[in-house]
């Protein structure tokens, strides 16, 4: 179903008054997703910016049941929530776990792969800002090659772990990538995930201006450049069928990489190599 802005619910189920930094990509992802997930949703969020910005003391920015879990367990907690709802005969509640790159791909991976393998009826979202921003921007498995982080002053020597391929390999009926710069594409993917009675995985690229060392107001712009340069492909895998949901214009990768402070150490040769591999991947011939 194609979504139109006019059809989206007016209610802000998440975000107003949140304690995040200005221009927070994670909060944008949360707001966009909640427009589709709706009020009958229980969300678990492991230690992350998203967990801390969502509440403090007796206040929360969520209007749905929100639970800030321990770091490595959100998908396991959500599995238990689903089991509890089921035994109580409640079948109309969406169960979501929402981790950062750490809570999904790294420290949280064990619980994630377990829940995915069990094909629990839930959605796991990885909102990916490509580093551990809640602790000040350290390197994660989702940090891209060459990127600087607060605990690496040379640039990441190894590649970003391909979480989408890993999750696809679980044989799930719904896996998708998304970007906060393409909200309708993102929201339609949440609709598709809701229609899947098993485990769905959505990986959202959500820039953090502080970690990426870009101006805050360009958060969406860089999310868009990541897609248009071909470095972040928007696609979904529905019951094993892979579809690219947006054809990128393939602007030069340099336009995306070089303005970011985190790539200030990247060599000309490295940029050329990335460009070559992207061009080859999209099959648009040598430039």
């Amino acid at each position: 179903m194609t979504l139109r802005i006019e059809d989206l619910p007016k209610e802000e189920l998440f975000g107003q008054g949140n304690g995040g930094c200005k221009a927070c990509g994670a909060a944008i992802a949360g707001r966009q997703a909640m427009k589709v997930l709706g009020e009958r949703t229980i969300i678990t969020i492991p230690a992350s910016c998203m967990a801390t910005l969502g509440g403090n003391n007796q206040k929360t920015a969520w209007k749905i049941p929100f639970y800030h879990t321990l770091f490595e367990m959100a998908p396991a907690v959500s599995s238990g929530i689903r089991a509890a709802l089921e035994i109580q005969g409640v079948n109309d509640v969406n169960v979501v776990s929402w981790g950062g790159d750490a809570g999904s791909a790294d420290i949280g991976f064990q619980a994630l792969t377990g829940a995915a393998e069990r094909n629990e009826h839930m959605i796991h979202v990885c909102y990916d800002n490509e580093m551990y921003m809640n602790t000040g921007g350290q390197q994660s498995s989702q940090t891209p090659l060459y990127a600087l982080t607060s605990n690496d002053h040379i640039g990441k020597p190894v590649k970003k772990k391909n979480m989408l391929a890993i999750m696809e390999a679980h044989g799930l009926d719904y896996v998708a990538s998304a970007s906060i710069a393409y909200p309708f594409d993102l929201m339609e993917k949440f609709q598709n995930a809701l229609a899947n009675p098993g485990f769905s995985y959505i990986h959202i690229l959500a820039p953090c201006y502080r970690g990426w060392q870009i101006p805050g107001e360009k958060t969406i712009e860089f999310a868009r450049l990541a897609v248009e340069s071909g470095l972040w492909e928007l696609f979904e895998v529905k019951k094993g069928v892979r579809t690219r949901t947006h054809e990128p214009s393939l602007i030069p990768v340099a336009d995306y990489l070089l303005p970011q402070g985190r790539f200030k150490n990247i060599s000309k040769k490295a940029v050329e190599e990335i460009q070559t591999s992207i061009t080859k991947y999209y099959g648009r011939g040598d430039k």
């Binding site: 107003q16 008054g17 509440g55 007796q58 929360t60 920015a61 209007k63 749905i64």
Partner: peptide, 19 residues
């Protein structure tokens, strides 16, 4: 006096948005 389970009122951050 606090709730037994550490909990927060829904949407309450919007009442006093610090940002």
């Amino acid at each position: 006096n606090l709730p037994i389970v550490p909990t927060a009122k829904p949407g309450s951050m919007a009442e006093t948005p610090a940002g």
